[in-house]
């Protein structure tokens, strides 16, 4: 998944906007953003943060400094060292896909932060908090915690299959089946871990520009922005 390959594949598949969200790390966001320059593809930086309950939450940010702060918060609460033989190399690349470093942290691990703390941290830094792959049986808020804890201020939920994507918000019929709160915005995305998975699922958004801020408005269905089905 080198940054140029990600960008090229995303463009080939007709995507206008991607969010680069490595597990517990944002160290390849800059390279992806630079690789996408002048290609027509917009890149939002983020992370897929693993909470103490082993729930994956996507935090996406327009502001690079905010993303750095979020990464700092994650790293401060992440222990262990990667074993490349077991979990693979954790490469940091530049925009040409050249390896410029190795991340030695155990990025596959869970942070010591609770789900509530992670969502709070993302929001305090101005980002969007989206519950990742809620239709998967692993590492989702639903698989780990059974249902979304009352009062948790998620901006949306991500689904990765074709189920539950006929509407842009959870309706009454889905609420029981997916165990998601009614009215929660749903985005569909690929959760791509390999180049061939990029763009296998996507969401059409009506927004002014391809930013996290605008995506947030679409999720909240305000100012004319919305998720198109």
């Amino acid at each position: 998944m080198s940054p140029p390959a990600v960008v090229r594949t995303a463009r080939e598949r007709g995507l206008d906007l991607i969010a680069v969200c490595d597990h517990n790390s944002a160290e390849n966001v800059g390279a992806a953003t630079r690789a996408a320059r002048d290609t027509g593809l917009a890149v939002i930086g983020g992370m897929e943060i693993c909470t103490r309950e082993e729930v994956h939450v996507l935090g996406i940010f327009d502001d690079g400094l905010a993303l750095s702060s979020a990464q700092q918060a994650v790293y401060q609460n992440l222990s262990g060292e990667n074993n490349p033989e077991v979990f693979g190399e954790q490469l940091v690349m530049n925009e040409r896909g050249e390896v410029v470093g190795h991340n030695s942290r155990l990025l596959i691990g869970a942070t010591g932060l609770s789900l509530k703390e992670v969502v709070g941290t993302i929001h305090s830094l101005g980002g969007l908090a989206i519950a990742a792959h809620v239709d998967r049986p692993r590492f989702s808020v639903i698989s780990q915690l059974g249902f979304v804890p009352p009062g948790l201020e998620l901006d949306g939920a991500e689904v990765c299959s074709d189920v539950a994507t006929t509407v842009s918000v959870v309706d009454t019929a889905q609420a029981g089946r997916l165990r998601l709160p009614e009215g929660l915005a749903v985005v569909r995305s690929s959760d791509a871990h390999r180049p061939e998975e990029i763009g296998s699922r996507c969401t059409r958004l009506l927004v002014e520009e391809p930013t996290a801020c605008e995506v947030g408005k679409a999720l909240r269905r305000i100012e004319g922005r919305r998720i198109l089905v």
């Binding site: 309950e53 789900l115 698989s143 780990q144 249902f147 804890p149």
Partner: peptide, 29 residues
């Protein structure tokens, strides 16, 4: 089990639930 979705699926009335999961959702489950 530490997965609440699994307990919802397989826990039975009168079971004592052994878990590492300290989250508040354990109580409604």
């Amino acid at each position: 089990s530490d997965l609440l979705s699994d307990v919802i699926a397989h826990g039975q009335e009168g079971d004592l639930w052994v878990t590492l999961q300290a989250h508040e959702n354990t109580v409604p489950v």
